[in-house]
Amino acid sequence: MSRATRPPVGQEAIAVHGWWHAHRFLVLRRISQLFFLGLFLLGPWAGIWLVKGNLTSSLTLGVLPLSDPFVFLQTLAAGHPPLLTVATGALAGAVIVALVYALIGGRVYCSWVCPVNPVTDAAHWLHTRLGLKKGWQPKRGTRLWVMAMVLAVSALTGSVAWEMVNPISMLHRGLIFGMGFGWTLVAGVFIFDLVLSRRGWCGHLCPVGAFYGLLGERSLLRVSAANRAACDDCMDCFDVCPEAHVISPALRGSAGTSPLILSRDCTNCGRCIDVCPESVFRFTHRFDDRTSDDPVQATQPGATRAA
């Protein structure tokens, strides 16, 4: 079906499952993003100091240190002795954060926490509304090169290089501590995604996303196209997925292949689960590779209706 003749993305899911069901993970994600930002803003705005600091390092309730492992890695590359950070909290904080994301999926950071995600999502929404061209689409591995570049520059200049320009920090730190002209970098990302490159920033370039992707390579929490036999090729999941290439291997895999979306690029945003009218997807763990095409569990024989 071509886009012109198809109903708008998600329409079918709303018709079948209702609005809430077709938006639950999107709404939960926005709540989560607001929650994490709100925790940090509660101090400076309302004087309630549950969390101090910002995403690069924070102290929660005066006891729990959390640090961004990618920023921490840059300090190591810059030559800051890690021993100095043992007693001071950054090391422990970075390890805790790394462990959590290694477990639940590195790019959960991207879709559930990162404050730039609503920005690039908004850019994508407008991009689609205006029917703009896909634009420049760098190769998938580009962000890994960018990540390597950031670490190399950190090592060469002896400074935490990405924090000079990181739009995430500009926005997050900016909202909490004062933005200056940091908003220009955030606006730059928005415009880049809007006109130059569809899903360009988070999907192709951001080294922070690349790092968290690597971190979650073996993560436990996964989306599975468990009920893939029911897929009617409406393509809605491909339309909402910020990393659409991760879906095919799981959804289109022949019988006997894993229905799990195992790519490190998957952000666990759950939008595919939301918009699928046939309830093909669900959250599960990485060892659960049951599918509806197993003869035992097949519920809808000959389910591939459309074409």
Binding site: S57, S67, G79, V160
Partner: peptide, 27 residues
């Protein structure tokens, strides 16, 4: 510059609001 991760925890714990984090293009 290779050690500070710009978290602002020092800023928060200064009782006299002496410290601030530099803003892009302003400070």
């Amino acid at each position: 510059l290779g050690a500070c991760i710009r978290c602002g925890l020092c800023v928060r714990d200064c009782p006299y609001d002496t410290l601030a984090l530099a803003e892009l293009g302003v400070d």
